[in-house]
Nucleic acid binder design. Structure first.
Lengths: 150, 150
DNA sequence: TTAGATGCAAATAGTTTGCATTTGT
DNA sequence: ACAAATGCAAACTATTTGCATCTAA
């Protein structure tokens, strides 16, 4: 229990929320993956770490983390249920193949100038962003509407 | 029945799908709004235009339009069900207030250069994008965690 | 003419709630 | 100590399915 608190855990605490076992377990499960996870997979992973944690707490935690911009629900092919993406420094970028639903990530987005301009224009404080590009990946350029999963 | 086909209807037809009454009604309902609509609101609007159209067809049409990048599901404040946003020229941009969930739209994103660079790097054909920025709006800068709807 | 699309109603996810109990600070 | 958070299981909402019928091309 004297684990070093991750930056996100600190963010949680600094926002005035309790660092409960359930929340820390959900956070650890999120951080252990590749940064993209569905609620179903997360429930499984959390259950693996501690079967005593209830479904409802996982969903409540997902809500809380979304409000804190730690994660962002996003739509990925086929399923209606969102996939939650971790927002490493408040931002995240990827390209989704509309045909096979594979996801390709990239880092550089060059949106700092735009962000700054919009802060002035709308008098908002902008804390992060999600940029999704859509298209057809190299493998799918020939075979439209196959819709296999990644 | 000799209505001028909207560009999106043409896109549908050109992709090899039938221009059915149900699909055209869903499209008209989508285009009549402000570009952001939940399935519940869409079902209502479609029902108003033609009560004979079934729920399942509306959902099937939403799937199809998503595959064609005519719309893009996105998750907005609180609700689990996605909100579908029209992608006017294949792209769409907005800012969401993390506190009150209001949405502010803007047009210019300056992502052409990035898009082009990524097409080369991943050997993909990029057809559109969705850019969401998150932050706290002018009205909410003082009052955190109120969470009223827009 | 006929593959593709539809409407229906029942089935299935997926998520939320109320509440008694526990826990972090 | 005590407000905040939890786990449970039941309730709910949103979406999908199977299938007989219909319709756009």
């Amino acid at each position: 229990m004297t684990d070093p608190l991750s930056p996100r855990a600190l963010r949680l605490r600094d926002s005035g929320f309790k660092l409960t076992h359930a929340r820390l377990t959900v956070l650890a499960a999120l951080e252990a993956g590749d940064g993209h996870i569905t609620s179903a997979a997360l429930l499984e992973e959390v259950g693996r770490r501690d079967p005593g944690i209830g479904r409802a707490s996982v969903f409540r935690t997902l809500d809380l983390f979304t409000r804190l911009s730690i994660i962002r629900p996003t739509y990925m092919g086929g399923s209606v249920a969102p996939t939650y993406v971790l927002m490493p420094d408040g931002h995240h970028h990827h390209i989704i193949c509309m045909n096979c639903n594979r996801v390709f990530e990239f880092e550089d987005c060059g949106l700092d100038a735009l962000t700054h301009a919009l802060e002035g224009r709308f008098n908002m404080q902008i804390t992060g962003h999600l940029l999704e590009l859509f298209g057809i990946c190299a493998d799918c350029k020939n075979a439209p509407f196959k819709d296999e999963d990644a």
